[in-house]
């Protein structure tokens, strides 16, 4: 008998934990506000010396919109599970990972539901932040209706890729018991190669070429470039195809790793 559909409640765990802790919400609001103000000031400042010329194919407004959207997008995956002793590494450390294998809900599905809940909750934050920034004139609306639809689809695929990347890092815990170093490298690589620190268009050609072979640029750089019009609608289809390819590849890989991880939990699960 498979798990009943009402297991959706597992998706609420992290958001509910955060909603029950008002200081955490206040902290997230302050952090997001400061990041947006600083990023906006930074990019406006950088462009003030260009005399209104576009750089790397981006106008000042496009660059600010890209950078602010990138900050908002980080909220999609940055929910605090650590204080709730609910990261995979903590479950491995405390031995509570065994309970994941003792329920009529597979660890894969449980993990996926939790991630879905986290990302939907993060999306709600990002949407509110987007609306505020749009109303304040910090970011521009999408260049066209078609760009908006392509952006939404590309963002969905990008978040899907990001989910698999995070899952792979968590799966690493089943072999190493520690993933903090890998997690730090991943976060840096993700931020650098996806365009969170700066739009990839400002990097040298060799760097852009290199990043095109990695999944990170498909998580954020593609949807944000579509949004601001740096990737024209005519060129969107191959990018979406590439994102879908990454989703399929990473899905296969993580599925394979799950089956092996189930055999590892025994010796390290305490």
């Amino acid at each position: 008998m498979s798990a009943v559909p009402s297991t959706w409640r597992t998706a609420r765990i992290t958001p509910l934990g955060e909603l029950l802790a008002p200081p955490r919400i206040a902290g997230a609001v302050v952090q997001l506000t400061i990041q947006i103000v600083l990023v906006t000031a930074l990019w406006r400042g950088l462009y003030s010396g260009t005399g209104g010329q576009s750089t790397a194919g981006l106008t000042r407004e496009q660059a600010v919109s890209y950078a602010v959207l990138a900050v908002l997008a980080t909220r999609l995956r940055e929910l605090d599970r650590y204080s709730g002793r609910d990261t995979v590494i903590q479950h491995m450390h405390f031995g509570t990972i065994v309970y994941w294998f003792l329920r009529p809900l597979s660890p894969q599905r449980y993990y996926a539901l939790r991630a879905l809940g986290d990302q939907l909750y993060g999306l709600a934050w990002a949407v509110v932040g987007y609306a505020v920034c749009l109303a304040a004139g910090v970011i521009q609306p999408p260049v066209s209706g078609g760009a908006a639809a392509a952006f939404a689809l590309s963002l969905l695929l990008g978040q899907w890729i990001l989910y698999y990347i995070m899952l792979l890092i968590d799966q690493l815990c089943f072999w190493t018991l520690r993933n903090s170093a890998a997690m730090l490298i991943l976060i840096f690589a993700q931020n650098l190669l996806s365009g969170v620190y700066a739009p990839l268009w400002y990097f040298p050609d060799w760097f852009v070429t290199l990043s095109s072979f990695l999944p990170f640029q498909a998580t954020l750089n593609v949807p944000l470039s579509v949004y601001v019009g740096r990737i024209p609608l005519a060129d969107v289809a191959p990018q979406l195809g590439l994102q879908a390819g990454w989703v399929a590849l990473l899905a296969l890989l993580t599925r394979l790793v799950w089956s092996r991880a189930a055999r590892r939990v025994v010796s390290q699960g305490g």
């Binding site: 798990a3 765990i13 509910l16 934990g17 709730g84 002793r85 609910d86 003792l102």
Partner: peptide, 27 residues
């Protein structure tokens, strides 16, 4: 199953919320 001091409850939630989650998982 109960494994000593290892809890299966969710640390950040009230215990009753954990019960409700398990109710749904087990149907």
């Amino acid at each position: 199953a109960v494994f000593g001091q290892r809890t299966q409850l969710w640390w950040d939630l009230p215990a009753r919320e954990s019960f409700a989650i398990l109710r749904d998982i087990y149907g």
